[in-house]
Design a protein around this nucleic acid. Sequence first.
DNA 1: AATGCGGGGTC
DNA 2: GACCCAGCATT
Length: 388
Amino acid sequence: MLDNYHLNQLAEPLLAWFVDHARVLPWRERPEPYRVWVSEIMLQQTRVEAVKPYYERFLKALPDVAALAACPEDQLMKLWEGLGYYNRVRNMQKAAVTVTEEYDGVLPADYGKLLELKGIGSYTAGAIASIAYGIPVPAVDGNVLRILTRVAADDTDIMKQSFRSAVEAQLGEMMRELTVPEELRRVLRDENVPGALNQAMMELGATVCVPNGAPLCEECPWSKMCLARAQGRMMDFPVKSKAKARRIEERTVLVIRDGEKVAIRKRPKKGLLAGLYELPNLSGALSAKEVLSYVKEQQFAPLRIEKLADAKHIFSHIEWRMSGYAILVEEAGFAAEKEPESGNGRTPEEKADGEGGLIFVDAWDARERYAIPSAFSAYAGYLKKEFD
DNA sequence: AATGCGGGGTC
DNA sequence: GACCCAGCATT
């Protein structure tokens, strides 16, 4: 794709632009390996603005690899709550254990070794290697694919894995051969050319050659050599095959309350929203009668049932259409674990873990301590709200 | 090569 | 509504 370009021709104006236009971002202040790692995992399929409020909080709670490796699961999920793609943080923790055991707690300064770590693919390995260690390897993300297909007016489908690999190979070779004038190199942070170049490409994609709407070509350091612009076809690139349509699922969400306690449960270890907590919910749009039948099956004595508003939640591949019921149940010493502190000393989390059973928790505690995904936000308000 | 995996923003 | 986002793991 870039056959007609020398990287110097692209890199010099881009780096010069980046020196003046780089956003001030928390993870850019001190590009240490662990800080870069955390930022890159958070930024996967997630916008900068969405990551900001999470980043400092996460770093403060888990300031180094050892702290991440040792963090209890529920606290980890709570720190990630709302960011989505929860396997990202599970895999990062697995990798932290590996880094602790095999690399003495320091991320390896080696692209291939980074790539072997859980949750680190070619993009993230390239980002860490280049930004934290100055290694000349590319970090090809959606931004990079967009700006390069536009500047070269390349109509290859960027969803094809083979294209991404080809771009990585081509960019990698060019980066290894790249030379940057001394005066330009000196003004880059740590004189790190590979790190600056990768970040500059992403910055250009995020702020100028934007993904939605028309690109701001007047501000672009590549405008004079951009083939898409020359052809007036900026919006024709990148070419991207359509994603499969999402399926629709009907669900019935229950707010089962007993005085000040509410029933939640832990989701399975694998699959959608793995390991997070949720309000009990069932497949289908159930009637009040069917809900009462379920509640009784769970060994509760329902006193009152109230229909709640419908709600919708859109995942990338599923749409939940939810109907809700609030059920007041009689206090009883049987059924779900009502008294976490009593009994054999296991916490409700341990009892819930893997068993899929309901646990009764203090209604206020529920949102404070348990990671509950935003799919349930329409009903999370009922965790605190009283029945008239 | 295709699919599962979140949540929020923009147009 | 549709599209997109500093992707990766699994099959």
